[in-house]
């Protein structure tokens, strides 16, 4: 079933730019992330990544960006956070003034311990969350260690924790829990949902089960030759408590897989 998020009435519409000129527009109001007719190809390459890409996700919550490898998920993520600027079409980021992007290969500087790094780089406004986050991410034992001394899973969690402690409206998590075991991953996602109900997340993953289970809206990015290139589906948005309805979950998973 195709699902589109309805636009909130007080969103300011932005004038659509001429073709092949990008517009990245932020506006006050409820959260909205919308792609309109985005076209993009890598500089110096003939390979087109996006052709008239359209789609939107709105409202706070744990959303997903899903798609096969090489389809352009990371490229879109970098467009969203402003690292890629030269594309044609329109990218609306209403209510998302502070967008952060994190990926699983990031490292902390090696000259200080994890604890020192978090202390130094956590804004005062988020200090009160630090202990809770460290504890729920299972990182208490890592605070005196150097980043390089941690396991890959601990490294992923540490990196994600430091981003969560920043001021942001939208956090794009590019395979941020790639090396974390399923149980811990579930705990972490549920904790994020619980701790940050008013923030938006765009979770990039290849795991159809976790995307279907935990995410509110799933932005499915398809291969370049398919039209439309993106389809937005509704996930099960599991927030804990009683187990998720297996049938519905399977249905959602099927929808996602079929959308590809």
């Amino acid at each position: 079933m195709l699902y589109e998020i309805k636009l909130h009435s007080n969103i300011k519409y932005i004038k659509v730019s001429p073709a092949f000129e990008s517009t990245r527009t932020g506006a006050q109001g409820p959260m909205l992330l919308e792609c309109k007719n985005i076209n993009y190809q890598y500089p110096g390459s003939d390979t087109q990544v996006f052709r008239d890409l359209n789609g939107r996700v709105a409202d706070p919550g744990f959303h997903a960006l899903f798609g096969p490898s090489g389809v352009g998920k990371t490229t879109l993520a970098r467009m969203i956070c402003g690292e890629i600027k030269h594309f044609s079409g329109q990218l609306i980021t209403a209510g998302l003034e502070r967008i952060l992007y994190t990926y699983n290969l990031e490292r902390l500087p090696g000259w200080s311990s994890v604890g020192e790094h978090l202390q130094l780089n956590t804004p005062t406004s988020s200090r009160h969350r630090m202990d809770e986050l460290v504890a729920s991410f299972g990182l208490q034992g890592c605070m005196d260690s150097r980043f390089a001394q941690l396991s890959l899973g601990q490294q992923n969690r540490t990196n994600l924790a430091r981003y969560l402690l920043q001021d942001f409206d939208l956090l794009v998590m590019d395979e941020s829990l790639a090396n974390v075991d399923e149980g811990t991953k579930e705990k972490i996602i549920l904790k994020i949902k619980q701790m940050f109900p008013d923030r938006a997340f765009l979770y990039i993953s290849h795991n159809v089960v976790e995307v279907a289970k935990f995410c509110k809206q799933v932005f499915v990015l398809r291969n370049f030759h398919k039209f439309p290139q993106a389809i937005v589906l509704e996930g099960r948005n599991y927030t804990g408590g009683p187990g998720v309805d297996k049938k519905k979950l399977e249905h959602t998973m099927l929808e996602i897989v079929n959308a590809l």
Binding site: Y101, E106, L108, P109, G110
Partner: peptide, 25 residues
């Protein structure tokens, strides 16, 4: 990039920190 990205995106990057990261690495 895998270290500098955090400081760039949180606007904490200074030239000293950049040099420190690159020298350390």
């Amino acid at each position: 990039p895998e270290i500098e990205h955090f400081f760039e995106s949180t606007r904490r990057m200074t030239w000293r920190l950049q040099i420190k990261i690159r020298a350390f690495e």
